[in-house]
Nucleic acid binder design. Structure first.
Length: 446
RNA sequence: GACCCCAUCGUCUAGCCCGGUCUAGGACGUCACCCUUUCAAGGUGAAGACACGGGUUCGAAUCCCGUUGGGGUCGCCA
């Protein structure tokens, strides 16, 4: 049986790292097993769903490289859900309820006040046909609840192991609203069946939906798929992700110069015993990927670790992989030599600007000993220069001044680049060129 | 409030089911040293954890009970 998974976001907001992890895990799982990955937009809530969010989610997924084999929209499948609801009614598993939202809220409040779990009391089940007619004559339209069998619900969760749920403590979920709109527990169960989903990989926050789904699927004459519930991530401070999205949204990370593969590399290994390593292609990540290796405890998403990973990814990228972006970041003369010289010293791609200025722009030299840099300037060889020029030149300076080690190179570095750290000077010097080098050694901004 | 889940170095975790081989292993990060005429990379080394309290046992990170902390769910949202 071929594997089919889906990522089913609701277009009610932008993606953050929590959604991205679920999407990535699904994608890697599909890729690993040669299966397919469906992007299913859960947009049955017409009031909250927005087309712009659908497009934003697609954009974020494309950025990550998590392309889908197929895309579906729940809003286009309303007739399927209506048909399924009819079958459930015929099977006696879907029953009409006439309480208003306010009445239900009142019931919940009273239950809570008495220390009871706020479960629906199934009062509608006791309504006679005559009472129902009377309510409908008053203009009340029913919403429909799925009758949960009060038995123990058990499934073998791929990441969690055996998961048990007491059916008696589960609310009868509303599957169809009074206005006829199907709700998520119905639409997602129907789609999982009809789209042949073999594995539902989603966040821990969906376990109660899963418990209901294990009864809805058989009531619809189908077998429930396998389930894998990922523990929810928290931020570096241990707080839930939903509470503070901002910096953890994919859009912001991207704008901040985080590489998509840094996010993927981090998310693919976080929570597993496998070491987090920089990967520049997704297939490096899918190789050996196992959902079952993911832990049951919720990991923390730490931006500081992501930045470290980002630097390591940049150091691995080829010139071709970044050429267009360097130009877009206003570094038009950044060529392969330049990139290879500086890529190991960047946290973000945009940090390249500092070294771009050293090679192609202006730098204010830092000089403590003008006599020394002046002497060094006199020994500067004629061009053309290559990567051997640096050692030839510094060798000559050493001979003439008697300086060596740090005392030799640091003043030169500070004069040439304005700072005391950076890429290897043997690579930078030819890019700086004789004219600039001469001026900077003489103390001039150039 | 009820129910469910989780709890090992700063972080991600191995070990837990099938107590002893755990003076608790690895990775990232940190620190030191080496190497390098910078940074990084690389090498060597160091510091660093079983949430707490009881119990069972000759022996508990591992089993039991309780506590605490964190998360989730309890919508005519998804």
């Amino acid at each position: 049986m071929s594997v089919v998974v889906r990522f089913a976001p609701s277009p009610t907001g932008r993606m953050h790292v929590g959604n991205a992890r679920v999407a990535l895990v699904n994608w890697l799982f599909a890729r690993r097993h040669g299966g397919s990955f469906i992007l299913r937009v859960d947009d049955t809530d017409t009031e909250r769903s927005r087309e712009e969010y659908t497009e934003a989610i697609r954009e974020d997924l494309r950025w990550l490289g998590l392309l889908w084999d197929r895309t579906e929209s729940q809003s286009a499948r309303m007739d399927r859900y209506a048909a399924a609801a009819d079958r459930l009614r015929q099977a006696g598993r879907l029953y009409p309820c006439y309480e208003t939202p306010e009445e239900l809220e009142g019931k919940r409040k009273r239950q809570l006040a008495r220390g009871l779990p706020p479960l629906y009391d199934r009062a509608a089940l006791k309504l006679t046909d005559e009472e129902k007619r009377k309510l409908e004559a008053e203009g009340r339209k029913p919403h429909w609840r799925f009758l949960i069998e009060r038995v123990e619900i058990v499934w073998d969760d791929v990441v969690h192991g055996e998961w048990r749920f007491d059916g008696a403590k589960l609310n009868d979920p509303v599957l169809v609203r009074a206005d006829g709109q199907p709700l998520f527990p119905l639409s997602s169960a129907v789609d999982d069946i009809e789209m042949g989903i073999t594995h539902v990989i989603r966040g821990d926050d969906h376990v109660s939906t899963t418990a209901a789904q294990t009864q809805i699927a058989p009531a619809l004459g189908a077998k429930a798929p396998a389930f894998a519930h990922l523990p929810l991530m928290s931020d570096a401070g241990g707080q839930g992700l939903s509470k503070r999205l901002g910096s953890l949204s994919l859009g912001e990370m991207r704008a901040d110069g985080i590489e998509a593969m840094a996010v993927n590399s981090y998310l693919a290994r976080l929570g597993s015993p496998d070491p987090i390593v920089p990967a520049i292609r997704l297939d490096e990540l899918s190789e050996g990927f196992e959902v079952s290796r993911l832990g049951r405890a919720g990991p923390k998403f730490d931006l500081a670790e992501l930045r470290i990973l980002n630097a390591k990814i940049l150091a691995l990228l080829s010139y071709d992989a970044v050429a267009a972006r360097l130009t877009a970041l206003s570094m038009p003369r950044a060529d392969e030599r330049f990139w290879l010289a500086v890529r190991g010293n960047l946290e973000k791609l945009a940090d390249g600007k500092q070294w771009y200025a050293v090679c192609h722009g202006e730098v204010r030299p830092v000089i403590d000993d003008p006599a020394f840099t002046a002497a060094a300037a006199k020994l500067l060889p004629e061009e053309p220069w290559d990567e051997r020029t640096w050692s030839a030149w510094t060798g000559a300076v050493k001979g003439a001044t008697g300086k060596s080690g740090k005392g030799l190179f640091m003043p030169l570095r500070q004069a040439l680049t304005g700072v005391d750290h950076g890429p290897e000077l043997k690579n930078l010097l030819p890019l700086i060129g004789r004219a600039r080098a001469l001026a900077r050694l003489g103390g001039k901004t150039a």
